[in-house]
Design a protein around this nucleic acid. Sequence first.
RNA 1: CGGGGCGUAGCGCAGCCUGGUAGCGCAUCUGCUUUGGGAGCAGAGGGUCGUUGGUUCGAAUCCAAUCGCCCCGACCA
Length: 579
Amino acid sequence: MRLSQQLFVTLREDPADAEVRSHALMARAGFIQKIAAGIYVYGPMMWRVLRRVEQIVRDEHDKAGCQEMLMPAVQPRELWDESGRWERYVNDGILFHFRDRKGSEVCLGPTHEEVITNYVKRMVQSHKQLPVILYQIQTKFRDEIRPRFGLMRGREFIMKDAYSFDCTAEAMVESYQTMRTVYRNIFSRCGLRFTPVEADSGAIGGSGSEEFMVDADTGEDAIAVCRTTGYAANVEKAVSKIAPPPAPEAEVAMHKEPTPAAKSCDDLQKLFPDLPLERMLKTVLYKAVIGETEQVVAVMCRGDRELNEVKLLNHLDAVAIEMADEETVKRVTGAEVGFAGPIGLSDEVRLLADNSVEGVQGFLCGGNETDTHYLDVYFGRDLPQPETADFGTVKEGDLTVDGEGKIEITRGIEVGHIFQLGTKYSEAMSATYNDEAQKRQPIWMGCYGIGVSRVAASAIEQNHDENGMIWPLPIAPYAVHLVQMKAGNEEQDALAQEIQDTLEAEGIDVLWDDRKKVAPGAKFKDADLIGIPLRIVVGRDAGERQVEWSVRGVDAPRENLSAEDAIARVRAAVKESGR
RNA sequence: CGGGGCGUAGCGCAGCCUGGUAGCGCAUCUGCUUUGGGAGCAGAGGGUCGUUGGUUCGAAUCCAAUCGCCCCGACCA
């Protein structure tokens, strides 16, 4: 493909609204163009990348026996009322919804559990038709609270979603395992470094769940990993083992301590320099919406630890939780904010404790009285230990639960998420099959998503340098960038043409920069920016059939090779990459 | 939702405080020269200053409303 015939525009400066490198680079290279917040045009180069990713996704699904299909983006409210999600998605403000000409409410699909369950329900009657896994690649719509980071969090994005349907829980787990393998294969084939992690299933619901994280320091998600044991989990879900602090030297009776204006652990440390943070227990107040009612919940936690709201939300089976406001804190503690504690709280408060309080003796806690804390408090002696569970956030350096290794915190970009849904949707929407005994049984479901456009963005987030993008060969817009120094020079024209034709005849795609009147420096800058991995430069030695070979992002000297050798290098690289 | 910031040529910005009819860099167009890391010279085109209303003899500039975009926060007592 001759670059001179393409609509190709690059910008020298980053666009003002680009916060992350992938966004800035793709915008500068003309891969994407913003048309509204979180909504982008995919230019021809970008579309080639997206099609490459899609093709890998498709291929791996088909190999595993999944069937591709396509569902509508416009969906009627009734379907969403059946699953009970309309209300919730509208309240969360995430659903694009409107009324049609007749006044019926419809939405643009943010996901397709309802449609697929409805489809399968009407298609499947017998256990003989199961198992089956269906998938589609399609544009999804989510009116994100805060679209961000270019393609990373858009309001319209390309997603592959798959759904498995099985007769039993065991069979569902089998389908889930199949998809785990499919996902590993997909991200490996895309040429990405990634980490599969245990995950919270969030709004979709269900039991087992795993996320696929592209390793990148700029990722939105923090993940806990252990090199020794191989443990890996999203910090929302991660568990660890922490040792209780040593007991105080002498056991003394609980007593009040004046703590004027000491509202935080920091302040308290200044007042009690000899008391370790581990022996200060903070009490955090939340307002939780559980079903139709709102409840105030107090959670105790060690001073050196942080709470994990996701775990708390799950434990409470709450729809939403938030930190209690000042007024609520004053009402239930009878004190200014900063002095909440477990002793003397209002009866309306449900008291919980994080595992980190386990075994802490002679601790300091809030006095539920302004400028007052209790010191030398013991669970069992001075008050019963509240209901204790894991509400904490793991920290770098924690031990894994089996005590075998240390946890490190790294960052990643979530590009895939797989769930065991169970019968949540099938029961809500009466998707059943007849078993051998002619009995109606709910279908066991799983769902599996990949953010196709996010995969592309994360590839750049993971692979770029100060000059531009560095595409992994399997998903690069072209395999080879043929840079011709002086278009119009007969020897160069002939050699470049020959190289392009040879490679294209072998099914290898070539971007040939044959632009006239573009300075060599500009061509190199553009080549660096768009990041096609394999580069052949046809220049002054074209008469001797000599070209220059380099690989984008590889720190090695440029090599002078014969055209034939360069072509052989391309063949080898393409073959190795599986492109 | 709350808080802050910004809308001026395709892109990046100045001008606004202190009203007087718009400027810089990149990009674009023409010509000549140049051709291995964003070339030089000469010339040229392109903007209802987001929108609406108000104040004023006069508004990019002041006021109000509105739309859009960006950032920060959902801060642990």
